[in-house]
């Protein structure tokens, strides 16, 4: 199966999904960074990756925001 080709043809994330997603830790809003393919929780200081169109909403898989 050609996963990379499939991912390119798909939008990075379904807008309907984005509407209801919150940070699992703070239940606060998320900002979508399309370039980096990340969902950012400012309150938790975490960036959740979106891989192949699937948000990975696990704090242990998230990138810690620096600043």
């Amino acid at each position: 199966m050609d996963d990379t080709g499939e991912a390119k043809r798909q939008p990075p994330i379904d807008p309907r999904l984005l509407e209801v997603l919150v940070c699992p830790l703070t239940k606060g809003p998320l900002e979508y960074d399309r370039e980096a393919s990340e969902l950012i929780s400012r309150k938790a200081g975490l960036a959740y990756p979106v891989r192949d169109g699937i948000p990975i909403m696990l704090p242990e898989e998230a990138r810690k925001l620096e600043d």
Partner: peptide
């Protein structure tokens, strides 16, 4: 979505 169902990432 991939996530932990004990802390759902939904409003």
């Amino acid at each position: 979505d991939r996530g932990d169902v004990t802390a759902l990432p939904y409003a």
